[in-house]
């Protein structure tokens, strides 16, 4: 079975990889491209640990075929900070202890950024529903929700 040669953009840089047609974007990111910040928690779209942006849309990379990324733009957790400068969400998560084991954190951050990029004044309910697909078993969500709300408030104030 022939592998597909895919050219795509990952975190702003052109990337190429070979993949089997059934391989998911998650498999490809982790095993071919070496970006293991995107996590596998369920491979059925139920946990959100593998959240990435695909052409500006928040998706579960476990539910995208690697071949589908051809010609598209993929953004992962590894592209969230600007060099040494953490994204405000990343900084706020550290300051407010919005992570414990940290395994869901990359997916949560990617998802939260997608929300704040379009809505910098979400209600608590909006944040909770937006992040309902990002399971966290450690925090009870409290500090995650607060950190997202507080980042949004900072962004509005800035």
């Amino acid at each position: 079975m022939a592998k597909h040669h895919i050219t795509t953009t990952i975190n702003g840089e052109e990337a190429e990889y070979l993949c089997e047609p059934q391989e998911t974007l998650l498999d490809v990111l982790r095993d071919q491209v070496g970006l293991t910040g995107t996590k596998e928690g369920c491979s059925s779209g139920d946990c959100g640990a593998c959240s990435v942006m695909l052409d500006g849309r928040l998706v579960c990379s476990c539910l995208v075929l690697g071949v589908e990324a051809a010609g598209k733009a993929v953004e992962t957790i590894e592209g969230m900070a600007d060099g040494e400068n953490l994204h405000p969400l990343q900084q706020k998560f550290l300051e407010e202890a919005a992570l414990q084991c940290g395994f869901c954190t990359p997916g949560v951050l990617v998802a939260a950024k997608a929300l704040l990029d379009t809505n910098n004044n979400p209600t608590e309910t909006e944040v909770r529903y937006w992040l309902a697909g990002n399971l966290c078993r450690c925090t009870g969500y409290d500090k995650i929700i607060r950190a997202v709300m507080d980042t949004a408030a900072d962004m509005r104030g800035a």
């Binding site: 293991t36 910040g37 550290l94 300051e95 202890a97 992570l99 990359p106």
Partner: peptide, 19 residues
């Protein structure tokens, strides 16, 4: 409420988990 020493690794995707 100090910032955890392993925090940056965990918010940037660098932290190495089992897989």
């Amino acid at each position: 409420r100090a910032i955890r020493p392993d925090g940056v690794d965990k918010v940037t995707g660098r932290a190495m988990y089992g897989a």
